[in-house]
Design a binder for these strands. Sequence first.
DNA 1: TTGTATGCGTTATCAT
DNA 2: ATGATAACGCATACAA
Lengths: 368, 368
Amino acid sequence: MHNKLTIQDIARLAGVSKATVSRVLNHNPSVNGLLRERVQRVIKEHNFIPSVIAVGLADGHTRLIGVLAPPLTWPSVPEIMQGVAEYIEQTHYEMVLYSIGLERNHSDVLDNILRLKIVSGLLAIFPGELMSHLTYRFEQGFPLVTIDDQAEPTSLPWVGVDNHTSAYQATRYLLDLGHTRIAHLMGPQHYYCAIERYQGYAHALRDAGIILDPALVFQGTFVPDSGRQCAIQLFSREKSDWPTALFVANDQMAYGVLDVAEQLGIQIPEEITVVGFDDNNFSALTRPSLTTIRQPFSQMGRQALETLVTMIDQHHHTGKEALNHPEAEETQKSMHSEQEDTSPRIQIPTHLVVRTSSGVPRTLSIGL
Amino acid sequence: MHNKLTIQDIARLAGVSKATVSRVLNHNPSVNGLLRERVQRVIKEHNFIPSVIAVGLADGHTRLIGVLAPPLTWPSVPEIMQGVAEYIEQTHYEMVLYSIGLERNHSDVLDNILRLKIVSGLLAIFPGELMSHLTYRFEQGFPLVTIDDQAEPTSLPWVGVDNHTSAYQATRYLLDLGHTRIAHLMGPQHYYCAIERYQGYAHALRDAGIILDPALVFQGTFVPDSGRQCAIQLFSREKSDWPTALFVANDQMAYGVLDVAEQLGIQIPEEITVVGFDDNNFSALTRPSLTTIRQPFSQMGRQALETLVTMIDQHHHTGKEALNHPEAEETQKSMHSEQEDTSPRIQIPTHLVVRTSSGVPRTLSIGL
DNA sequence: TTGTATGCGTTATCAT
DNA sequence: ATGATAACGCATACAA
């Protein structure tokens, strides 16, 4: 076992100093071509990789990136993490996963992570009430990116989707199908994405010249059970009062709707069309399979991490610059404004996935 | 920002030396009571936490544990990870997640992880063909634990379930229900768990005095599509040749069976009972919901990590012992054998979850 | 271009 | 019991 191979050993083996090996390792151009090759040969031959720990200590730049995530059994989270993992695989960073349960004080968890100084940046996935805390840390200079659907936009770098437009498109799809009485099951009011999706829905109706009927807007909580309650309430009405389509603000609630419909013997999409939002794993397997807006979770994870890595590298460089040339204010300013310009809000396109839970309204299909 | 707070600062603030602060930090008993309290006060006041990086460098014991996992979108993996996360939260370790895609050479990934010397132990989840490599590393002295259902037992510490007994119980349940013609859809032959489950099935039949009918044993590959193919083949037979129950070796294949049954208009459980294995997330939501053997994935993750942490701590201590008292062979020997005694194969109990895909055989229900 | 010396934050080995 | 001081493995400013 060559377990204890250090840069010193390589130096000895190559007949040079540690410094030279270090330079070769870090692609420092000031190394003679032949010497460089010789050192690299020794490095390859012995499969030498510098200790990440030691490197971190020496240059104050750990190659570790923290990922703060809700329980991995939550919907969508594994898909996001997969994107994160895929991206990180092609970098020289490693991922430190902080999957937080519901019990502990999230604020303390965050403080600990930061005080341990073990990660040089953090991706926060669905951080919930931690947002303000995160924003504060970011403004203090800590590299931070978030994937969130709850908080209103802040100065924090953010990756997500355009909920308004996506909901608009879903509603537009229903209108194009011929539906005119389109109901909406909203998410909770304290979710910004719920507001946006509602507004996209309302917007599409308005553009179609249809007056939004408040009796067709239901309030849910994003969990299946609230979908069930909405469905029970809706289906207990006079059938003549039913909408012909229901746009549900997320798939989880749509599952509840489908569930109740099946129990009540209500045919979907024949009697009512159902469209969801998210395209979670299960949505292709429900009966009927769910037409829904696909959120590109994996891409979101990848994009978020790419953004974060860029930030960390910048942070690292400007840090050194600031140390060496404290007079170069101009340069720093321009870089800072450049960072401002690089829109910290990245929106990734969604698209509609048409499955079997949606169809033309009954009135029309009968007419054919 | 008190970002750059070091042990040196604490020492100055408390009017002592770094060494003393370090001793307090590590609960070294040789510190005067009053002094200890004073130092501790300063530490608390400033929320000081020693740098994990520096500690790692100094004592060669990084507080990082690696977790090598297949893509998180695989079934069961998020549940295992949740258990891992829950356990690690209550330790002083952090988790470095290596989620490997399908493309790269796993062997190289492993070598890199080990050569980086960034983690002091590794949990390998479903490592596939990496097993022999892992076993080698473990025998070289690297703390390693695995959660696997594919390889035959090795000397590697392992956490899992008793597949034979579990399959026996599932089959026994069907027998108790009154079924006598019970089919089995196996997993692939190169999965050890598939063999074990088949044997448990066969064992239960034998104990019930039933002769195993080879025409009722199907070969699958653990994916939904192979469940579909089995179902198509089975349902195309003369109905009089059908079994009254089908024990499927995992839930994924059972989904395929359910799918085909629905398309063919075959009633489950009225026309045929289906029982799965795993209790994946979807299994409670299928139509009909799936009766299955529940694998305690979360507990498995927790247990595996607990085992690993114990190993790492031992490894660390005995390492120091060996260094300081190389003559104490007796002690080491006994510890070594103790490690051998501590069965490296931990089996966590499963249990049957009865849902709606199973019932009494038709012949009996008609007779009532 | 290359080597030497110092520092990173902590633990551990010496003295005292 | 406590305080200097030398590792730990690497990067880097400085000297050559």
